[in-house]
Amino acid sequence: MMRLPVRIAACLALLGLAAFAAPRAGAAEICNETSYVTHIAAAWAVEGGVAIEGWTRVRPGECAEVAQEVDLDASTQPLFFYAKSTTAYLGGVREWRGTVPLCVDETDFQVVANTRCAALGLASRDFFMREGDARERTVLVEPSEFGRRAQVAGIQRLLQSAGYAVTGIDGYDGRSTRRAVARFQSEAGISGNPGDAALIDALEARALERNAGSGLIVCNEADGDIATAIGHRAGEIWQSRGWWRIHAGECARLLASRLETDNAFVYAERVSGQGRRPMSGGNERFCLAPARFVSEGRTECAERGYTAAGFRRVPQPENGGVRVTLTEADFQGLRQ
């Protein structure tokens, strides 16, 4: 999963969001200035633990009220948020997160919990915290800050994920974007002007259907978290990149593009308080770095500031996708 930035919206007029209605008293507001359809979870302290609820769906260019049960005027307690993109996108799920681990479920949920998520049958995600006036309004952004162009950028990204040719994700309604929209509407039987919100919904449904089983999915059935990396051919260039943190009992799509041949490889390390235990049985060498990385080429790793590790070739894909499941038995090497 890729982590993306969060920004406090101290002055929405400067961000091109002045047209959004102000949240009602007592509600916090999250605005989505990214090119992704996002799902939001919110949390706040209550007697007996932390109240956590999700998921609130927010389209690109829209805002939503969350944590509506909290009286922001009367309370000084911080709020906590976690956001993720839907699974429709090429490149996998994106996250907007922090450092506070709290419990979530895969489907819509409301729960009062502490940090013992596994005992409740829940997953753990790292939430970011908002305090004081910053609790009232938060803006999710990408490195390319789209601002008022987020809605068009969202349509463009969904068009790409649904298999339509778009020149780039820039938030400008150019000729290639209009052609791709017209082609999609014709093929989907959508006439007239459905509006941007309805168009985003229809494109997301098409992309989800197209990409549901494609790419490389890694599932973790080890006793704890694993950190994963992949090696694959990107055009004419071999590339390795990582890391994705996958909690025990969960899966993540590391490559969302369709796989036509078995030219993808996977590497993982079992993460615990005693260190990291490398995956055994890999014999295809790729380059690694200790932090998030992208390395082109699979030779001369040390000369280029990387270390080398043995990756495993993934099985032959079926219908453009493959699933790899790792268990505790896959991690029998020495601790690092």
Rank of each mutant, 00 (worst) to 15 (best):
Tyr172Gly: 12
Ile230Arg: 00
Ile237Asn: 13
Gly154Tyr: 01
Ala188Ser: 04
Gln239Ala: 11
Gly275Arg: 15
Ile169Trp: 05
Ala227Glu: 07
Leu199Asn: 02
Asp201Trp: 01
Val166Gly: 04
Gly231Cys: 01
Arg157Ile: 08
Glu187Asp: 05
Ala252Ser: 11
Ile190Thr: 01
Ala207Leu: 05
Asp173Ile: 11
Ile190Asn: 04
Leu203Cys: 03
Arg210Phe: 02
Leu208Gln: 13
Ser240Asn: 09
Glu187His: 02
Arg270Tyr: 14
Asn220Thr: 12
Arg270Val: 06
Glu187Ala: 03
Tyr172Phe: 11
Ala198His: 03
Cys219Ile: 12
Ala197Thr: 07
Leu255Asn: 03
Asp201Asn: 08
Gln156Met: 06
Ile226Tyr: 00
Leu254Pro: 00
Leu199Thr: 01
Ala165Gly: 12
Arg270Ile: 06
Arg277Cys: 11
Gly215Arg: 14
Val271Cys: 12
Asn193His: 12
Leu216Ile: 13
Val166Asp: 03
Leu199Met: 03
Glu236Trp: 14
Ala229Tyr: 00
Gly273Lys: 14
Trp244Ile: 00
Leu203Lys: 04
Gln160Trp: 12
Gln239Phe: 10
Ala229Arg: 01
Glu250Gly: 02
Gly249Met: 01
His247Asn: 08
Ser186Pro: 04
Tyr172Arg: 15
Trp244Cys: 05
Asp173Ala: 15
Gly168Lys: 09
Arg258Gly: 09
Arg270Glu: 13
Asn263Ser: 15
Leu216Trp: 13
Ile246Gly: 00
Tyr267Trp: 14
Leu255Lys: 08
Ser161Arg: 10
Leu203Gln: 03
Pro194Ala: 07
Arg253Ala: 03
Leu254Asp: 00
Glu187Lys: 01
Ala229Phe: 00
Ser186Asp: 06
Thr167Gln: 15
Cys219Glu: 12
Gly168Val: 13
Glu269Val: 12
Gln160Ala: 13
Glu187Pro: 03
Ala188Trp: 01
Arg233Trp: 04
Ser272Pro: 09
Val271Phe: 13
Asp170Gln: 11
Ser272Tyr: 08
Ala222Arg: 14
Glu236Ser: 15
Ala205Ile: 05
Ala202Arg: 04
Val218Trp: 12
Arg178Asp: 02
Arg175Phe: 08
Gly189Glu: 02
Arg178Pro: 06
Thr177Asn: 04
Gly249Tyr: 06
Glu236Thr: 10
Arg277Gln: 14
Gly189Asn: 04
His247Ser: 11
Gly213Glu: 14
Ala222Gly: 15
Gln185Thr: 00
Ala222Tyr: 07
Gly275Gln: 11
Ala182Val: 00
Ala222Leu: 08
Pro194Asn: 09
Thr261Lys: 05
Thr167Ser: 15
Gly213Gln: 10
Gln185Trp: 07
Gln156Pro: 08
Asn211Pro: 09
Asn220Ser: 13
Gln156Asp: 06
Glu204Lys: 00
Ala165Met: 12
Ser240Thr: 10
Arg206Asn: 08
Tyr267Ser: 13
Ile155Asp: 10
Trp243Tyr: 07
Val166Lys: 08
Pro278Asp: 10
Arg206Leu: 12
Ile217Ser: 14
Ile217Phe: 13
Val166Thr: 07
Arg157Ala: 10
Gly242Cys: 04
Ile200Lys: 05
Gly231Thr: 00
Glu221Leu: 15
